[in-house]
């Protein structure tokens, strides 16, 4: 994760909106558990609502949205694997337990990174995530 020193200083209102895009995914993730799609939908709605905002706001809404995509894949797979164990004849294996731990680990990293980014973005700092930051640069027009 990189904090860029950019010449642009967002207004307090912009910083609040950008920071909220991260908070939105966190709140929705907690409220929408165990359905992993909820946080993506919430972040997407927030993104749509701010797609005409300033570059700073749009950029952070996009980064927040992209970060939710990777979680969606790994969490959905884990969710349906668990459903098949609870409601059908699939059994708990070492691979399943290892998958759950891996997913928890990645979610935790994402969770901490999101809180960190929300705090720094609120202060008006431009936090660029490894991989997601570059992806956002690619798809978010100025």
């Amino acid at each position: 994760m990189i904090i860029d020193n950019v010449s642009y200083s967002p207004t307090d209102h912009e910083a609040e909106k950008a920071s909220n895009s991260y908070l939105m995914s966190l709140v929705a993730a907690i409220a929408g558990l165990p359905l992993p799609i909820i946080n993506l939908i919430a972040t997407f709605i927030f993104y749509m609502g701010n797609r005409k905002g300033t570059y700073f706001v749009r950029w952070h809404c996009t980064q927040a949205l992209l970060s939710q995509f990777s979680l969606l894949f790994m969490n959905s797979f884990g969710f349906w694997w668990t459903v098949s164990i609870v409601f059908s004849d699939a059994v708990v294996t070492n691979y399943y337990v290892a998958y759950v731990i891996t997913v928890i680990l990645f979610n935790l990293i994402e969770f901490i990174a999101t809180i960190y980014t929300a705090i720094h973005t609120r202060r008006g700092e431009h936090v660029r995530w490894w991989l997601y930051g570059d992806l956002t640069n690619l798809i978010c027009p100025r």
């Binding site: 337990v97 290892a98 731990i101 891996t102 680990l105």
Partner: peptide
Amino acid sequence: FFGTWLILSQVNWMKLLRI
């Protein structure tokens, strides 16, 4: 991601967690 999963699946969780 897959590396972490693969390494973790080498642990005998079934025995460790008494499943």
